[in-house]
């Protein structure tokens, strides 16, 4: 967002903080024009490979992406955008291999170091194309062949049912460990939070549980103050937590509350659907309403909150929302 626009929106945020809880006020400070610089105490991972099949099909990797949100399309679609900075821009062309329909409707898509693409299923409006028993299956598109196959099945304590249609919700490729880190809420119910986070070794598919009894909507790993941490957004609360990980993705400390989203944005009840670190070390939080149902509003209700980490005070500061 242009600085000009930031300034205007941020002054509004300042007015709002008067009415927020103290915990939030601690986290949310006005970003003046002078302090909108970057403090690089957060190290983002950049190791995404280029899928070879994109090139083979004549797509420009710099302008192309895999999408699970194309209108009236199931599965995933390879699209080439007219403007890469604008996901809504005109598609110059698109392609869908027949195997890419296998997951049914799809959600999170992540690319690994070698260009393999990982696809998670996600029911859309109903379960007709997303059988409950497949909602914890990670699908992989081979970088070379471009063919999608069922890759790893994450354990399910209970098959998704009328109380909760979801299984896997988010995936993040961790460059440090060459592992896919995924969250699942399969089997969780209103009064029974039994979701979990797993790491899956990309080379072998070996699966290891990182956290349990935690429903997570979005996650990533990052180095905060030289400490490797897993950041994760609760699927139940407007909160982002973190936990320290060692080099083998074992938890080495207690979970820590990092950011409250309560009361922020136009809705005030957003959950962190996706977390991403930009190249300047700013945390992007894609906030959406999430209530364990199959509603699919026509107008996407999403706000991107950008937070900066203050290594001295060890707090996150909201820099913008859009």
């Amino acid at each position: 967002m242009a600085l000009l626009q930031w300034t205007k929106i941020l002054t509004i945020i300042d007015g709002r903080t008067k009415t927020m809880k103290q915990a939030q006020i601690r986290l949310i400070t006005l970003c003046s024009v002078l302090c909108c610089g970057v403090m690089s105490t957060v190290v983002a991972q950049q190791c995404k490979g280029i899928p070879q099949f994109m090139i083979a099909h004549g797509f420009d990797p710099a302008r192309s992406a895999m999408s699970s949100q194309e209108n009236r399309k199931r599965g995933v679609v390879l699209i080439e955008l007219s403007n890469m900075a604008n996901p809504g821009s005109t598609r110059n062309k698109s392609y869908q291999h027949p195997s890419w329909l296998l997951p049914g409707y799809a959600g999170s898509i992540t690319t690994g170091r070698n260009g393999d693409i990982y696809v998670l299923p996600k029911a859309n409006v109903n379960m007709l194309y997303n059988p409950p028993e497949n909602q914890n299956t990670i699908y992989r598109i081979d970088s070379k062949t471009g063919i999608l196959t069922s890759w790893v099945k994450i354990p399910m304590p209970r098959i998704p049912d009328e109380h909760n249609a979801s299984g896997l919700l988010s995936a993040f490729y961790d460059c440090d460990t060459d592992a896919l880190i995924v969250s699942t809420v399969a089997g969780s119910r209103q009064k029974e939070e039994i979701g979990a986070i797993y790491s899956v070794k990309a080379s072998t598919g070996e699966t290891k549980r990182i956290l349990d009894k935690t429903d997570v909507l979005g996650l990533l790993t990052a180095n905060l103050n030289n400490e490797r941490r897993l950041l994760y957004g609760s699927a139940r609360r407007s909160e982002i937590w973190s936990v320290a990980l060692d080099a083998s993705n074992h938890v080495t400390g207690a979970p820590r509350l990092e950011i409250l989203l309560e009361g922020l944005g136009p809705r005030g009840d957003d959950k962190a659907r996706k977390l991403r670190m930009d190249t300047n070390g700013m945390l992007q939080v894609f906030g959406v309403p999430f209530y364990y149902n199959l509603t699919a509003p026509v107008e996407r209700q999403e706000t991107v909150y950008v937070f900066e980490y203050n290594p001295v005070k060890k707090v996150w500061t909201l820099k913008s929302m859009n």
Partner: peptide
Amino acid sequence: CPEYSNAAVV
């Protein structure tokens, strides 16, 4: 139900 359901319209 609006939460913990399979409802698309709640």
